[in-house]
Amino acid sequence: MTSRPLYHLLDVCFELSPDFALRIDDWQHSAGQTLCLVGPTGAGKTTFLKVLTGLISLQTGSIEFDGHGWSQGVASIDDSRRIALVPQRPLLLSRSVRANVEYGLQLRGFRADDWINELLHRLGLEKLAAKSAQTLSGGQTQLVAIARALALRPTVLLLDEPTANLDPASVGLVEQVLEEMRQRHRTTLIWATHNMFQARRVADRVALLLAGRIVEISARDDFFHRPVDPRTQDFVNGRMVY
């Protein structure tokens, strides 16, 4: 790995419920790389992303982000503002689409009309800009959630099934916009997906999560063509693993 580690998680434990805990023994991720998190439903992908936001207090373990230690896994406001999340089920404010996209910048006291216009245009949201966000379809809501996160030009973009509600053309568009973003701003993408084809298209590295643990993590081609763990072999071959 040539680029410097952006995240370093050590002995992390986050108990979501008595039945489920996310346990990460030692995990590092480099700036500018795209990691795809794959795994069956309930494997802990969403919880992992939530932990990476720095907004959740951990039971044990440590997180280092760009050289800064987070106390009990909670980031400083400066660090947390470098990270943006696109949730699986985005909730928008009862404002216009444009106001939703501008929201994060507004919190930081910035205005960037040209950038917002560009984003709305790139994601095909121009005509919806003045519309109330509460009247949008599921797919449109997802696109607005992506736009509001991209508006912040974050260092890290955490994506939780960001294309789950989208038609194939929009999936292609989103993947293209995210790739542009990555190249222009060296954004680090951590992307949870159920779609193995998508993981093959976008990932530099892929991690398989099972029952809250990382089973295997490797470069994309190694993961899909030379998996080490038998559970990864089963998973990439379409056999259900638990």
């Binding site: 947390s80 503002r81 943006a84 949730p87 089920r89 909730l91 919190l107």
Partner: peptide, 26 residues
């Protein structure tokens, strides 16, 4: 207001006071 919205607003950079203000608006 759904608790998940609070988390999502925080993930967009809302400080506790900004969060309260936004929730008042909502």
């Amino acid at each position: 207001v759904p608790e998940e919205l609070q988390f999502q607003l925080q993930s967009l950079g809302a400080t506790p006071w900004q969060l309260r203000w936004t929730l008042l608006g909502e």
